[in-house]
Simulated assay, not measured.
Amino acid sequence: MKIAIMGSGGVGGYFGARLAQGGSDVTFIARGAHLAALRGHGLRIESATGNLHLPRVQATDEPASIGPVDLVLFAVKLFDTEAAARAIRPLVGPATGVIPFQNGVQARELLQQELGEAPVMGGVAYIGAVIREPGVIAHTGTMHRLVFGEFNGRRSARAEAFLAACQRGGFDAELAGDILLRIWQKFVLLVGVSGSTTSMRMPIGPIRANPLTRAFLRDLIAETAAVGRALGVALAPDEAESRLAQLDGFPPEMTSSMHQDLKRGHRLELMWLSGAVVDLGRQAGVPTPANRAVRDILALHADGPAA
């Protein structure tokens, strides 16, 4: 299977390496020092599931040089979605699938605006991975799972082919018939974790242990679920309680990528997480005061360090 990795950071770099290990024809799209390292020394994965070094990989900063592929694993930061979607147009042929493995719920619409409806599939990634240094991806823990599918629920040939490629790559994968619901279930959880840890500058353990901050965390989750239901997503009535119970099982030191980005002075995905809940809530007529608080508190940091 010919696969292009658009965004070769933690998610794209890790799963792209495993797919290449399993025999897929993988090309990494990257830039800067990371691209130079990929070209010069290959790609190294540091993981409790097994270290991996691919001494030679295909890597470029010009998607048009690759030509049409079977599948694009789309894993750029949310704020880069529109520009990246335009850049991958030359990769998209009549049967190409484009699967965004991103944090928000708006990628489908943005990608369809640029590429049309037919190529765009849905996906959810479950992994903790970052670029430790150029050319090196560090995987935290042992979870490495992709869930994906067609929005019409059918088991298409391209989805089945990608499932087989994932299985050969040696990581967990699921072809789901309810991918929109699965995307929103992760979004509900992620908005709570990212909004609370980043606004409070603390990991999840102390937040869930304190009655006041736990209540705020629950409000972030409940508002997001209410917005999803108002938009027609079949989230359960007790979605907030289920996600909060799920969080109770996470390691107390766990935090969010947005919290890490804040600490490093990087741009935040704020407006595509809590900010998106506020915007979608306004459209759906659902109040979102907790998520608005997170958005407004962090607004001065959204584009990097405050002036």
Rank of each mutant, 00 (worst) to 15 (best):
D172L: 10
L78H: 08
H266S: 01
T81W: 11
Q106R: 12
A164R: 15
V286K: 06
H139N: 09
D303E: 14
S199T: 15
F171S: 04
Y14N: 04
G149F: 07
P287V: 07
L270F: 06
A245F: 00
A159G: 15
I88W: 04
A245Q: 10
V72N: 11
A157R: 13
A164N: 04
P211Y: 09
L111T: 05
G42E: 09
P289D: 06
V191Y: 13
T224A: 14
F74K: 05
I127L: 13
A129C: 08
R89M: 10
S257R: 13
G32V: 06
V147F: 01
F101T: 07
G10F: 07
Q58V: 00
F28M: 07
R264E: 11
E223R: 11
A307Q: 11
V72K: 12
L111M: 00
G205T: 12
E109L: 14
A125S: 14
A83T: 09
A84S: 13
A36H: 07
G128W: 12
E46D: 08
L262I: 13
S274H: 04
V124F: 01
K77D: 06
L189M: 14
R86Y: 02
R243T: 03
V286I: 15
G304P: 08
R214C: 10
L247W: 05
R108Y: 01
A138E: 15
R31M: 05
V130Y: 14
I5T: 07
A225I: 11
G169N: 11
A240C: 07
I127Q: 04
E241C: 03
A20L: 08
